[in-house]
Every structure is written in C-alpha cells, then in structure tokens.
C-alpha cells in the first residue's frame, strides 16, 4: 500500500483526525508518521508539553499501521503496550517510527520510537502487541 492511500485510511478514523498526524513513509516492516502540535494535545499546560497519553496513542496508531496499512478494512486488535518516557515532548512536530519486530500467524510485536528535532534524542519508546486473529 502506498502512503497516499494509507493517509486516506487515516483520515477516515475519527480519533486519528483528532490526533492530526500523517504517514510519511511505509514499507513492509516500517511506518513513519508526523503529528502536528495542537493545544488539545497538551498534558502540562504550564510547560505546554504533549500529554503522555497522546504520545502513547500516536505510537499505537503508527504501530497499528505498520502491522496493517489497510487497517480501515482489517481492524487490528491491540493487546497491550509499554511506554518508556525519556524526554518531554515540547511544542512542535512529533515524529514516530514503528518497526514490525515480529509478525506471526496470531500475534505481532511492534517497537516504536518518537523524537522531535534529533532522532538520537528519543521522546519516548514503546512496545506494542497486537492480536491478528
């Protein structure tokens, strides 16, 4: 699936429209996306940091797309997630890259990393499991 049709799928999901992100690249093992900062995504109103739950949601969305780019027709079933918060997500775009570590018949394991200006300085890292049956 190409990036254009994957983004058309993204725009059909109400919660993805709320998060306001776009897929930037896609191959059989990876998905990369960019989220635009907005006031409604703030967790700490004093410092204007992204909400931790929003960062986790954005990573989950990117992970699900890496598993099934055609998710609009084939819904993935998230089982659980673990997120390690490494740095505050400040005002500005947030990037996520999901890597399909393992996709079996029943289960998929996906690791995701998010960053802002420097790929080497991760904002958060996450591990997501999905049920495929």
């Amino acid at each position: 699936m190409d990036v254009l049709s994957a983004n058309a799928n993204v725009s059909r999901v109400p919660f993805f429209r709320f998060l306001n992100f776009e897929i930037r690249s896609l191959d059989s093992l990876h998905a990369e996306a960019e989220m635009t900062f907005d006031d409604r995504l703030i967790g700490n109103p004093v410092m204007e940091y992204y909400h931790g739950g929003i960062i986790a949601s954005f990573m989950e969305a990117t992970a699900a797309i890496a598993v099934h780019p055609d998710f609009a027709d084939v819904p993935v079933k998230p089982i659980n997630l673990t997120v390690d918060y490494l740095r505050p997500g400040v005002k500005g775009p947030l990037y996520a890259r999901a890597k399909l570590t393992r996709k079996g018949k029943r289960m998929a394991s996906v690791s995701v990393i998010t960053w802002q200006t420097d790929r080497e300085k991760a904002v958060a890292e996450g591990l997501y499991h999905f049920l495929l049956v």
């Binding site: 999901v13 919660f15 739950g53 929003i54 986790a56």
Partner: peptide, 13 residues
Amino acid sequence: RLHGGILTALLDS
C-alpha cells in the same frame, strides 16, 4: 468503539 489510546491517556491523567 473507542481507540485504546484514549483509555491510555485517561489512565495517565
């Protein structure tokens, strides 16, 4: 159907 992410955000809050 709610996205799991919003439940995660809710727990964090």
